[in-house]
Amino acid sequence: MGPLVANEIITTDTNLVFAFLIGIGFGFVLEGAGFSSSRKLAGVFYGYDTVVLKVFFTAAITAMIGLLFLSLFGWIDLSLIYINPTFLYSAIAGGVIMGAGFILGGFCPGTSFCGASIGKIDAMVFIVGLILGIFIFGEGYPLWEDFYKAKFLGIPKISEFMGIKDGLMALIIVLVAFGMFWIGEWAEKKFPREEY
């Protein structure tokens, strides 16, 4: 049955309507959870507010478990799902640069749109930065093209990498996530802040 568009149950144009609706849900939940505030987002790095950790990992394990069950029931064909290929060096270097951008800028791309939608000027300036950064990457592409394409690993799953079954891997991830929630709750008590 799923993915609906790949199985031609909906057209590619209808798919774009769904993209818009899914985006509304995405933006609504991000804003409602407080992701429109850079000071709430940055809190995860200092322990005073770990909403990022809680929302991010709850969402990841919810979707992960959902996909495993949908696949188990035969309701979705996971082989038709798009998964980013893994290029080891650029994945690490890109992540490191993004991490620096996160702690300096206080947003990531999705949350900056969310912040901009309710009038945060710092979020709008962050978006200007994003545009510049992507433009610079495109303009200087020949300089880092080799690095960008180096160490291609295919589309490996973390379960394959660890040599265990998807279900067991998912269980481990859920347990790790619960451990992190516990640390998050502890950190908020240990490093409290009244106003921010």
Partner: peptide, 28 residues
């Protein structure tokens, strides 16, 4: 921060939502 995040998102083939969150959900 925006410039760095924009650059990094291209190098890393996706940002926090596209690469990290969506990737984790499919055990990538």
């Amino acid at each position: 921060g925006g410039v760095l995040f924009g650059f990094g998102s291209q190098l890393g083939r996706g940002c926090t939502s596209g690469s990290a969150l969506s990737g984790m959900a499919v055990l990538s």
